[in-house]
């Protein structure tokens, strides 16, 4: 991958929603949202690194840069 286009960002962000003492549900604590790689590149530059054809068919993209595995962020935290 071009030096310039190394991943210098995160694809999961979080924030802490305000919780009032009058809110009946147990506070969720942290809320998560995705910010996938396509938000950060603009027009795709030439010569980005590729997956092998076989791998690409499995992953859903030819380009390593755009690959973004998703898992339930709340489960990971063991909630």
């Amino acid at each position: 991958m071009n030096e310039k286009h190394q991943k210098s960002f995160t694809t999961v962000k979080s924030y802490r929603p305000f919780h009032s003492r009058y809110d009946p549900c147990k506070p969720i604590g942290v809320k998560y949202y995705s910010t996938p790689p396509n938000l950060f590149l603009g027009f795709q530059p030439p010569n980005l690194q590729q997956f092998s054809a076989k791998e690409a068919l499995k992953k859903g993209t030819l380009w390593r840069f755009f690959y973004d595995y998703y898992e339930n962020p709340y489960e990971k935290k063991g909630r």
């Binding site: 996938p36 790689p37 396509n38 590149l41 603009g42 795709q44 499995k58 992953k59 859903g60 993209t61 380009w63 755009f66 690959y67 973004d68 595995y69 998703y70």
Partner: peptide
């Protein structure tokens, strides 16, 4: 997950 990845690529191409 495969389908979600395709959404990301499509969004990129529309952009």
């Amino acid at each position: 997950r495969f389908l979600r990845q395709r959404e990301i690529v499509h969004s990129q191409r529309f952009r």
